[in-house]
Structure formats: C-alpha cells, structure tokens
Amino acid sequence: MLVVEDLEVRYQELRALQGVSLRVAEGDLVALIGSNGAGKTTMLNAISGLIPAASGRISWRGNSLVGLSPDRVCMAGVVQVPEGRKLFPKMTVEENLEMGAYLPAARKHLAESRKAVFEIFPLLAEREKQLAGSLSGGEQQMVALARAIMAKPGLLLLDEPSLGLAPVIAAEIFQVIEGLNRKGITALLISQEVLHSLNIAKYGYVLENGKITIHGKAGQLLDDQRIKESYLGL
C-alpha cells in the first residue's frame, strides 16, 4: 500500500501541496484528478523523490520514501511515467527499454520483460532500432509505458499518459494501463481525461489548490454533481 499523509511541498513561499493525504491499496488503480496547477505533478514528483517534501509522510509497503533520491525510490519498486514522456531522445527504442531495466533486479529479467513488452506493443518491435526522438507522439507514449514495464514496478505513477494523443491512441493507452493493473501492478494515475480515468479506476481523489477536496469510489465520483460540473462539463 502507498500511504501519503499530510504531505506538504513548498516552492519557496508557494505552498504547492498543503497537507495532502492519500492511499493506494495493493493492486488498486487510483485516479488523481484536478485542474492545471492543482499540484498533481508535484505530488508524483514528491513521491518519486525528484522534489523534497517539506513535511509529511510517504511510505510504500511499509517503507518510508521520504528523503530518498529518485534512484532509491525506483529501487523500492515505485516507478514513474513522467509527464511529457521524457524519453532518451538520442537513444534507440531498444536502448530506452534497456534503461527501463537499468537496476540489477530488473536487468535480471531483461529478456522476458522485453518479450512481455512487445506482446503489449507489437509496433515497438518494428521500431526497436529507431531513435526514440524520431517516433510519433503515440509511439513515444508506448515507449514510455514500455520502459516503465521493463522496470518491473510494484507501484506505477502515471502522469498524463494520454496528453496530446489522438483519441483512438489515448483509448489504447488507457486499455494498456487497465491491463497492467489487472496483472497486479498497483497504479496512481493522473489524467485530464476524467471520465476515462474514473472508468478504469477503483478509487478517485480530487486535488484543488494543493488540497484534496473530494475523494471516494470512482463510481460515486462519476455521479458527484461537483465533479460533473467542474471536470466532466455536464
């Protein structure tokens, strides 16, 4: 289980996160919703150790992640698919996947992970020798997800995996995420596509101005009047 309690993150004077608490139970897919600038990416980056927490607790499977460097957080099995994909543009698709399995624990399973990844994304097998920077947006997002799968994550942190993609491809990406979750990977998903993400999530949180304002079962949130008005445009 991922437990975040009273997490506070500051950018100088600005309190980006003001005492956020959230839980993701083992095997669950949880959606984190909120408008631009609400602090969603800040939240994931604080969990990953890219930005320091001013106060509060973060733990995964009982081990505290506070103060760990990003590579240590990855070692603990918490893997982020960052916003904007952040591939290694001048490396081939194959090398990007290898970098996903950089840590020794994941590297041991390199061959089988590759096979699994190519089963999910057959297209990537054809693109293996191409530079990641030369791929289309949809293909790049597939590489970003594939790279994360190579890391053998226990917990997957997904930051806007469908941003800027054509609707058909976005739907495919959501399907893959749902499939990964069914295979037992716990996931915390940020997405602007509220309807889509609440449809595949079990639980949802709404983050507004650095605070959790609403949370509940995904189905309940879809019926919530406030969410319908603010996020679904109904």
Binding site: P70, P82, K86, F88, P89, M99, Y102
Partner: peptide, 14 residues
C-alpha cells in the same frame, strides 16, 4: 548518455 539526455527520467529509472 541517458543521464545527460534526460536527467529526470534517468534518475526515475534508477
């Protein structure tokens, strides 16, 4: 190479 092409991502992957 990875670390200098995409510093954050390299760190995120260990």
């Amino acid at each position: 190479r990875a670390a200098w092409q995409q510093r954050d991502a390299a760190q995120l992957y260990g």
